[in-house]
Design a protein around this nucleic acid. Structure first.
Length: 567
RNA sequence: GGCCCCAUCGUCUAGCCCGGUCUAGGACACCUCCCUUUCACGGAGGUAACAGGGGUUCAAAUCCCCUUGGGGUCACCA
């Protein structure tokens, strides 16, 4: 670390600066987590800024939906957009706003004018077609295209352009000299002279480009440490040049490795779109499937890779096409029942480790220990299987009452239909019956959909294990009752049975001792099929109580009928 | 293609900066066994890696070079 960073380390300011989005993807979440942990662990501040300088990706209220995801992960910001957290507290605000770049145009223009006055920026009048032609030329010569000033134009020429209705962009005059990219993770590297071209700093529409806005805002918002994805590595050269031209301080940089999909591609918020585009292409569809997206949306979407479908639209289209959208957003994992503290823990392990054999830790530990010195340079694959294992461990370690409370909170948002049919006693029983076998907060519900079915419509699954349990198609053994026969017999016993755990279990064991050679499994499995439709359910007596006495009796009847109809 | 970055079990990683303690440690996955009324959980074992080639050195996973492989980036997107 140089002396500059040691001064600022006493009270660092980090920032997370995404473009507007309704959802936070895991890569962004990890970046935010590291920025937050670094600043908060050192008594500093964590700032959020919205980089909405692209008018084509217009912003509305839903554009900062990702704030909800951050808050859910336990990542709160000291400065940034104001957000009302679920617990009633307000997050955000601050003295260096506005925190939306689209509201800071005057500020950017002021600094662009300084560059213009100094001659380190200039107007460029090239049309898109002209630029494209340049690029093609470069490509033909197998070179990368680097824009350079094409010389001053006369006042008459300029006036002619204006009269023609043309408008100019402002470009930065980049010195042709080697540029050192400062980076505390990858190490300092020197970019050869000429690699940085005269890049655009103000677009035709008057908005600054990302490069310019970032540099101005990081300075004005007193940002001391910039941690961002490695895809920005080369951009940093541009930012360094701009800082020098503007007379700004230089933050400490740290570029984080990207997170990859299992297939080695970069994990990106566009992955959902990619899956859909591929499916559309493979099927050579020319129009949107019924009840998915409008023709306008469809056309606009397919016209450009930069246009992304809204999440709702994407889900509908995925259903219509029968493809599975990848889980990449924090909210996808929340819906699947993952715990926020586990996601943070797991994310932190992708690209950082505290050393030794320590793997499980919380955000407080992260704050205390996180530093750039242990950030990995290599890209990591996001391993959902290990995430699940971590989640399972956390679920098992959870006190039962906490488990119940968190499942209820999950159900209120994602599984309200269970809350509607289960009274307090049954909800508690379901929780007791599912806790130790649940890997996520969603499993008590997802795995017990049979509870939602009416007794008259519960479907029975026709597969090998069901057939085996009921004895369908099996060779009759002399003196041994089939599962179906057990069902009929025990139904009669259940009719007179008090519907309590002990009574049911006692009756069943008594029956098994008398008629199934004491093998309770021979009775339990057919009952499970009758009550749930499959051979998988929570412990059998709990399952029976959950379904209810009338339900069980009726379901046994229907199960027997169904089985007989199979022959 | 130009430029830049990276490289330890299938995966996430410890070790590397400060060469010997590494016949390379942990976790997830996988395999075997145990537990078990289903599915899970749990318990006990096991398979499994320093990309390749050159150096430097008494000694290299650790330092240097090359090759190969992977990634990023080359927009009036961020």
């Amino acid at each position: 670390m140089d002396s500059n960073s040691e001064v600022s380390i006493s009270s660092p300011v980090t920032r997370f600066a995404p473009s507007p989005s309704g959802h936070l993807h895991v890569g962004g979440a990890r970046t935010a987590l590291f920025c937050w942990a670094f600043a908060k662990g050192r008594g500093g501040k964590f700032v959020i800024r919205i980089e909405d300088t692209d008018q084509k990706r217009s912003s509305d209220a839903a554009s900062v939906g990702f704030l909800k995801d951050l808050e859910w992960l336990g990542i709160r910001w000291d400065e940034g957009p104001v957000y009302g957290a679920p617990d009633g507290s307000n997050v955000g605000g601050g003295p260096h706003g506005p925190y939306f770049q689209s509201e800071r145009l005057d500020i950017y223009n002021h600094h662009i004018q300084r560059l213009l006055d100094a001659g380190t920026a200039y107007e460029a009048w090239d049309t898109t077609e002209e630029l494209e032609a340049f690029r093609k030329e470069s490509l033909a010569r197998k070179e990368a295209f680097r824009y350079r000033s094409r010389g001053e134009i006369s006042a008459e020429q300029r006036a002619a352009f204006v009269a023609e209705g043309r408008s100019a962009v402002i470009r930065f005059r980049a010195a042709i000299t080697p540029v050192t990219i400062p980076d505390e993770v990858l190490g300092y590297t020197v970019l050869p002279a000429g690699e940085v071209d005269d890049f655009v700093i103000r677009k035709k529409d008057g908005f600054p480009t990302y490069h310019f806005a970032v540099v101005v805002d990081d300075e004005l918002m007193r940002v001391t440490h910039v941690f961002r994805a490695q895809e920005h590595f080369t951009n940093t050269a541009k930012h360094v040049l701009l800082q020098d031209a503007l007379g700004f301080r230089r933050p400490v940089y740290g570029h984080l490795s990207i997170i990859k999909n299992p297939d080695d591609s970069k994990m990106s918020k566009r992955d959902k779109d990619k899956v859909l585009r591929k499916a559309v292409k493979e099927r050579a569809l020319t129009a949107p499937p019924q009840d998915t997206v409008s023709v306008e949306q469809w056309t606009e979407w397919l016209a450009s890779d930069n246009v992304q479908l809204s999440l709702d639209a994407a889900i509908k289209l995925a259903e219509a096409l029968g493809v599975q959208l990848p889980e990449i957003n924090v909210d996808d994992f929340r819906r699947s029942g993952y715990l926020p503290e586990v996601i943070c823990n797991f994310l932190a392990l992708n690209g950082w480790s505290p050393g030794g054999d320590v793997e499980k830790f919380d955000n407080a530990f992260l704050q205390e220990r996180f530093g750039l010195d242990r950030v990995l340079k290599t890209a990591a694959k996001f391993d959902r299987v290990k995430l699940l294992a971590f989640n399972t461990d956390a679920m098992n370690a959870m006190p039962h009452d906490v488990f119940v409370q968190r499942c209820r909170a999950h159900a209120e948002i994602f599984r309200p239909e269970f809350l509607a049919i289960l009274d307090a006693a049954k909800f508690t029983l379901l929780m007791k019956a599912t806790h130790e076998r649940s890997k996520t907060l969603d499993e008590p519900f997802k795995g017990n959909m049979f509870l939602l079915e009416s007794d008259e419509s519960l479907p029975f699954k026709d597969d090998k294990s069901v057939r085996k349990a009921l004895g369908i198609g099996a060779v009759r053994e002399e003196g041994v009752k089939s599962g179906l026969e057990h069902l009929v017999a025990i139904r009669a016993i259940f009719e007179g049975c008090t519907w309590e755990h002990a009574a049911i279990e006692h009756a069943a064991h008594e029956y098994a001792n008398a008629h199934a050679a004491g093998k309770i499994g021979n009775v339990a499995q057919p009952l499970r099929v009758a009550a749930s439709g499959t051979t998988v359910s929570p412990p059998i007596w709990d399952t029976l109580i959950l379904v209810g006495k009338t339900g069980v009796l009726r379901r046994i009847e229907r199960c027997v009928q169904w089985a007989e109809s199979l022959h």
